[in-house]
């Protein structure tokens, strides 16, 4: 059984590289039972999403007015 700390490492590895079948199964099992790690994974996806958005031209008005 993976610890939460190990799971966070796999979440990054999933994004940057790829997981082995064993890693994928271990993470899937952990995440199924651990809502905190489930949220962690979705937070990291959230973070990637907003970064991608910031790098997309023309979606924002000039923040200096804010």
């Amino acid at each position: 059984m993976l610890t939460c700390k190990e799971t966070t490492e796999l979440v990054s590895k999933e994004v940057d590289d790829s997981l082995t079948l064993k890693e994928r199964l271990d993470m899937g099992l952990h995440i199924m039972m651990c809502s905190a790690c489930r949220n962690y994974r979705s937070n990291i996806r959230f973070l990637r999403y907003v970064c991608k958005d910031a790098a997309t031209p023309g979606r924002h008005i000039d923040e200096t007015k804010g």
């Binding site: 949220n39 924002h60 008005i61 923040e63 804010g66």
Partner: peptide
């Protein structure tokens, strides 16, 4: 423990978030 953050689109529209 990490919390659920909701829909990114709803956050994106808030200028304050970018700051």
């Amino acid at each position: 423990r990490p919390a659920f953050w909701g829909d990114p689109e709803a956050t994106l529209v808030q200028q304050q978030f970018w700051i």
